[in-house]
Amino acid sequence: MINSTFTPELPVELLTVSEARAGVSELGEVLRACVEDGAGVGFVLPFTQAAAEAFWASRLDGIERGERHLLVVRMEGRIVGTVMLELAQQDNGRHRAEVAKLLMHPTARRKGLARKLLGALDGLALSLSRTLLVLDTVTGDTAEGLYPQCGYIRVGVIPAYATSAHGSLDATTVFYKQL
């Protein structure tokens, strides 16, 4: 069981491909718990641990090639939060990246860890000369309120964008941030 106290001192870690490979099970646990909790992150129920681990395993090649970077935060030694920086590969997009899979295990929410991950992601993006970040999130989700607090600008809403974990069509809200 995760301790419920506020823990701002927890460090954000940038995982190497070998660390990500070793953490696939824990990463899968976070993803599965989020999907089971209704997160609109690309998957529908039923969603198994094996499917969650397969998703993370499919990200490893991109990490190894340097096209994607994975940040995590741990509590009590276990991964409880993630975010990825997906670098645009086009010649005309070398200044931008997509924020993907900001996930916080339901037992680790409301502790400031998502903000901490996003702050670290900003620093990572700048270190890679990426000055424009883009993302989308389920309209009406709690995360939609988080992004403006972290400096993201709302672009607009796309209706009926993706099937939710429970099978209904959800709108998505698009954001950007200039660093």
Rank of each mutant, 00 (worst) to 15 (best):
I153R: 10
G28D: 05
R21W: 07
V17L: 03
G77C: 03
H95C: 02
R94C: 09
G140E: 01
G81F: 05
A57K: 09
A114T: 09
V17K: 14
H95T: 03
A22E: 08
A120H: 11
R74V: 00
V24T: 13
V99D: 05
R96P: 01
V24N: 07
V157Q: 09
G38D: 00
P46Y: 05
A97S: 08
Q178M: 15
V12M: 11
V72R: 09
D37L: 09
R94W: 07
F47K: 00
G40K: 05
L10D: 03
A108W: 05
G93H: 12
V44R: 13
A33K: 03
G62V: 04
D141M: 02
L124N: 06
D141F: 14
S4P: 13
S168P: 03
Y176F: 12
F175G: 03
V80S: 05
E86N: 14
P11L: 08
Y152S: 00
K177F: 12
L15F: 08
G81A: 15
L85Q: 03
S25R: 11
G93K: 15
Q49H: 11
S127G: 11
G81N: 03
A33G: 06
Y161M: 07
A51I: 02
A114V: 03
T173Q: 14
Q89N: 06
D141K: 10
L169E: 10
G151T: 00
T5E: 04
T173M: 09
R74I: 08
V41L: 08
L45Q: 13
E98I: 14
Q89E: 04
T163D: 06
V30E: 00
L169T: 07
G81C: 07
L87Y: 07
L60I: 07
A171K: 12
L133M: 11
Q178R: 15
A108F: 13
D122K: 10
D91P: 14
A160Q: 15
L27M: 11
D91A: 15
K101N: 14
G40D: 07
R65H: 09
G42F: 02
G42C: 00
K101M: 13
H95K: 06
G145Q: 07
Y152F: 14
L31M: 06
G156N: 01
E53T: 06
